[in-house]
Amino acid sequence: MQRLEIYTDGACQGNPGPGGWGWAVAPEGQPCGSGGDPDSTNQRMEVYAVIDALRTYSTVADEHGAPLPIEIVSDSTYVVNCFRDKWWVKWERNGWKNAKKQPVANEDLWKPLIELVKSSDVTFRWVKGHSGDRMNDLVDALAVAAVPR
Rank of each mutant, 00 (worst) to 15 (best):
G95T: 08
L113C: 02
R55W: 03
D52H: 13
G29V: 01
P69T: 05
T123S: 15
K90Q: 14
P18M: 07
R84S: 13
P148K: 13
S34A: 14
H130T: 04
D85I: 01
P18R: 15
S120L: 01
W96C: 05
W21D: 01
R84F: 00
N15C: 09
K90V: 09
N106D: 08
N98A: 06
V147P: 00
A105T: 06
D9A: 15
P69R: 04
M135N: 07
R44I: 02
K101R: 13
P148M: 12
A53N: 05
T8M: 02
S76T: 05
K128N: 00
F83Y: 10
V127D: 01
N42Q: 03
T123F: 04
Y7M: 05
V104M: 05
E28I: 05
P103T: 00
W87E: 11
W110I: 10
A105Y: 00
V139T: 09
A66H: 15
A145D: 14
G132A: 04
G35L: 08
I70K: 06
T123V: 13
D39C: 06
M135K: 10
P69D: 07
A99T: 11
D137S: 12
H130V: 13
P148W: 14
R149N: 09
Y57D: 04
V104P: 12
I51E: 12
S120T: 15
F124M: 04
K101W: 00
G14A: 05
D37S: 07
R84P: 10
D52T: 15
H130A: 12
P112F: 02
W88V: 14
A141W: 01
A66T: 11
W23L: 14
P27C: 00
G20E: 04
W96F: 03
D137H: 00
G36I: 04
V25L: 09
T8G: 02
S40W: 11
L4S: 10
L116Y: 02
A105K: 15
R3D: 04
Q102L: 13
H130Q: 13
E63H: 08
W87F: 07
K101N: 15
P38T: 10
D85W: 09
A24K: 03
P16G: 03
G129F: 10
D62G: 15
R134G: 00
K90D: 12
I114R: 07
I114W: 00
R93L: 11
Q2M: 08
V25I: 05
V139H: 12
V117T: 09
L113G: 03
T123L: 01
K100P: 01
A26C: 06
K101L: 07
M135W: 01
W87D: 08
T8W: 02
K86G: 00
N136I: 10
T41F: 07
Y48N: 08
G10C: 11
Q102M: 13
C12M: 13
N94L: 07
I72A: 09
K90E: 12
A105G: 06
M135V: 07
K128W: 01
F83K: 03
W126L: 10
Y48E: 09
Q13E: 11
A143M: 08
D85L: 08
G17Q: 05
T41I: 03
E107M: 11
D75E: 03
P69A: 04
N106Q: 06
Y78C: 04
D85N: 14
E63R: 09
I72F: 04
